[in-house]
Design a protein around this nucleic acid. Sequence first.
DNA 1: ATCTACAAGATGGTATACCATTTAGGAACT
DNA 2: AGTTCCTAAATGGTATACCATCTTGTAGAT
Lengths: 218, 218
Amino acid sequence: MKLISEVKKNAVYDYLYSAIRKGEIKAGDTLTERDLAERLGVSRTPIREAIRKLEEQGVVIHEPHKGAKVITLSAEKAAELYEVRELLEGLAVRKLAQIHTAEMMEELTGYIERAEKKALAKEIEKLSDINSAFHLALARLSGNIYLEVIMNMLQTQINLLMTTSLSYSGRPLENIEEHKKILEAIKLGDGDFAESVAKYHVRQAKIHAMKKIAEGGM
Amino acid sequence: MKLISEVKKNAVYDYLYSAIRKGEIKAGDTLTERDLAERLGVSRTPIREAIRKLEEQGVVIHEPHKGAKVITLSAEKAAELYEVRELLEGLAVRKLAQIHTAEMMEELTGYIERAEKKALAKEIEKLSDINSAFHLALARLSGNIYLEVIMNMLQTQINLLMTTSLSYSGRPLENIEEHKKILEAIKLGDGDFAESVAKYHVRQAKIHAMKKIAEGGM
DNA sequence: ATCTACAAGATGGTATACCATTTAGGAACT
DNA sequence: AGTTCCTAAATGGTATACCATCTTGTAGAT
């Protein structure tokens, strides 16, 4: 039985991460414990824990006695991000091609269906969340726990990038089509092929993101 | 000016991680905050932070109201670990082949020299630490910040594996020879070749580790 | 004998106060 | 005017107490 009021530690984390994604807290801003505690009406303890978690995920960097600064995602960092993600997503999909079951495919298809609805409804923030969930699911279902943990971190960063820098602008339909192609490749059961399709997808996403960053004001 | 007494949070983390590596705290054991606080003579606060960090690194898993349990590294987990590491170390070395400078090579060579000394002196625990530092340096020098963060986590896990399961038993000399080959490949500047040498090294380490796990009592 | 319910202990989460360290700004001196 | 030193404020770290929740064992009922 899940209660409404989650533990504050998580609530604070969610609030801060969301505020950063929405741009209410900008890159370079510093989070100070006492400040936030007062503003959110809680003690420093849950704030500390939330900031630790943000640090863990690479969202802020803590400089002693200067506060935790929200990272700035430069074009270089974005390139590094996608570089690693290409490898890992390739591996996840390769493994999935070898071990996939009907239930797995059903779950994955579910994300795509929901994504299509959100895309049509232009609910871009929710679309972004669903796409995140899709990629995380690929990692989780691959059965490699490390892939899952790492992809979670990378996805957190990518969401940050998408929202703060790219203002959610995506290529929603092409993106979804590529996701479908990944699922088809998994169904074929050919690890090499599935891996190459997944890598292609990540490269496309990277190209798009880099172009946006180059245009937009970073 | 660095003082002797580091912050307790880190001291507690170091103590716990070390105790786990030494087997004083075994896989499956639970860490409870009050318990440790009393035994180490500090308050729960630094204990909490240390446990969080252990959790972050995947060393313990926190189950609500049951304490933080030290993970059990099964053969499957070890295989997953090396699977991911092969990809990432391959990427790191590929990049290094393209961007390496004299200073970088000097640093890397330094690790190998120190490793040889420790190997000859049979100081196996210190050897293990130096090898960790070598691999972490590869990731760091590659210039991809994500590689560095991720490799740090993987290395933490591998150290755990080496000590708890493999009792430091290694193939120290072969290992060092392979490290030398990696450096030579980097110097040649051929990314593809360097990557393949690095991947080969990780696969060898994996084979050795898996064999040991199969023999030894896990 | 088994099941239920409840109470006590264990565990985690939060609030608060205090201490340590660092930073930053200004006063005093040259 | 520039430099040095010192102090106050900011920030982080730690200790402690209290509260909420969950687990577990046991007493009582059936």
